[in-house]
């Protein structure tokens, strides 16, 4: 958790240096940079995906055939599309939660967070279910490796995002944290959640649709 650096008054009465990045707290800044770093991690896997895909003829993609029927594997566009909608919707619910806090509505904040976490958990469950029924494994072709690595790392990030939101929820319940004026950890967690969402939309378009 990033520590909020508030201006501190020392015992001698002098005031610590005020933050200079006016309008943005250190915690949010750190989270933005961290998200930049995470984006680059996904970029490295997308690079791998594109280069693997580039090596294979277009009509031969994806290079996985169902052993029983001999038909080309088709990504589950519809089911995952619905799942995508869940995740996108959860971005709005976490925004709603923050919005309610701004109005001092702590109950609304809690509800928003719970709905967000439920949606996130549903997404993960659907994704695991998809893994079980896909019919190929990470060991099948470089495509399998890239597919599972991308979706798997994304799933891991959803899990991390859920953990962050869960910590915020615990802080709200147990320590009565966050006020309309100060909610940096919550803001950082929700920003991370939006990032996870945006990555998924990109991933869905690249891996499932085109």
């Amino acid at each position: 958790m990033a520590a909020e650096h508030t201006a501190t008054v020392s015992s001698h009465g002098d005031v610590a240096a005020p933050g200079r990045g006016a309008g943005i707290s250190q915690g949010m800044l750190a989270m933005i940079l961290f998200i930049g770093s995470e984006a680059m991690l996904f970029a490295s896997f997308f690079t791998a995906y594109f280069m693997v895909r580039y090596n294979i003829a277009e009509n031969d993609w994806p290079p996985i055939k169902d052993l029983a029927t001999g038909e080309r594997f088709e990504p589950p566009v519809l089911g995952t599309g619905v799942n995508t909608a869940f995740l996108v919707f959860s971005s709005f619910t976490v925004w709603y939660a923050e919005h309610r806090l701004k109005h001092g509505d702590r109950k609304g904040l809690e509800r928003g967070l719970i709905v967000t976490m439920l949606l996130g958990a549903t997404f993960l469950a659907v994704q695991i279910n998809e893994y079980v029924h896909l019919g190929f494994t990470p060991q099948d072709q470089a495509y399998g490796a890239a597919f599972y690595t991308l979706t798997g790392f994304h799933g891991l990030h959803v899990f991390v995002g859920l953990t962050l939101l869960w910590i915020c929820y615990l802080r709200i319940k147990r320590a009565h944290d966050f006020t309309p004026q100060w909610a940096t950890p919550l803001g950082a967690a929700s920003l991370y959640w939006h990032f996870v969402d945006v990555v998924w939309v990109f991933l869905y378009v690249v891996v499932y649709l085109i």
């Binding site: 693997v52 090596n55 060991q139 099948d140 495509y143 490796a145 599972y148």
Partner: peptide
Amino acid sequence: VGTNFFNAANGGD
């Protein structure tokens, strides 16, 4: 894990 990112025989690079 035995993936094939770098195994050219299975589409790796």
